[in-house]
Design a protein around this nucleic acid. Structure first.
Lengths: 158, 158
DNA sequence: TATTGTTATACTCTATAACTATA
DNA sequence: TATAGTTATAGAGTATAACAATA
């Protein structure tokens, strides 16, 4: 990662541009790193971040509807359809009609889905441990708590 | 934001699915909120997050090259071209050839670019203050520091 | 040979409107 | 009328290969 030997001012690392930064800048850069790592980690399982997140949520919350899943994932319902389609076609989840309200699909994981999920979760946890090795537990927990507070402030936006 | 009155299990808020979450999940949700707010804030200036970030970095670091800017923004060079194009066509920045290395463009902001940047930066700062009102200074700084550590661990990925 | 900027391209993610079937 | 799921579609953002000009 040596800087280019150009005649322009010495290479601008992101850290040098300390003036007038905004949280979105740091969040995006950090998220890029996390997502790139996640993409690599999930590749052997043929999962992306979205399909992985959906699968974990379905395994952990059997019976939830697509609307509820879309809400939990912060994704628009139309965009969730293709994600659920993919998981269903691979035999990882089931779409069951709810007799008392036939508009709703109750989502649940198959045995294959649970097994794939378990392996993927383990892999992700392992990679995350490496990725966050530079943070002590207190700092990490503080960051996650702060991220959750920001999430929550969604409704209170101007 | 009342949950749907369905016969399926009570609405799953994201906060209920505490099992087996991963940082990417929290980072994405929080980033969604920040970016949505940023998009709204920048709309009056006809800027997006990417064009705003590029403009601020050029204003604060006059003379940097497109490669350096792409590196600072964590964007691939080909994708930066259209961003710089847009700013140049709007008369906000200049692309100047460097005599000592004619491969490079030295980027700098015009007066109009500096003025628009100043107004946009102020608006963003104001919105950010509201968005992060739920966090005390210590928590906020801790989060940003943690995000920067994650950024840095990019090179050390497995 | 390597680097800067560029074009072309494809893929993913996101956002909106409109439809159906059920309630 | 309202909601769940769906379709279609358009727009961002992202990633890769290949090229011309320059070093």
């Amino acid at each position: 990662m040596a800087g280019p030997k150009s005649t322009t001012p010495d290479s601008f690392r992101a850290d040098d541009t300390t003036l007038r930064q905004f949280v979105g800048y740091h969040m995006k850069r950090a998220f890029n790193v996390v997502q790139a790592d996640l993409t690599q980690t999930l590749k052997p399982f043929d999962l992306r971040m979205l399909t992985y997140t959906a699968l974990v949520l379905i395994v952990d919350n059997p019976g939830l509807s697509q609307s509820q899943l879309a809400d939990a994932m912060d994704v628009e319902r139309p965009n969730l359809v293709v994600i659920v389609d993919e998981l269903e076609q691979r035999g990882l989840i089931l779409r069951d009609r709810v007799p008392t309200d036939r508009r709703i699909y109750a989502l649940s994981a198959t045995l294959a889905g649970c097994q794939l999920c378990a392996r993927a979760v383990e892999a992700v946890a392992g990679h995350e441990r490496i990725l966050l090795a530079g943070l002590d537990t207190e700092t990490k927990d503080g960051m996650i708590a702060a991220l959750q507070v920001i999430q929550t402030s969604k409704g209170g936006k101007i």
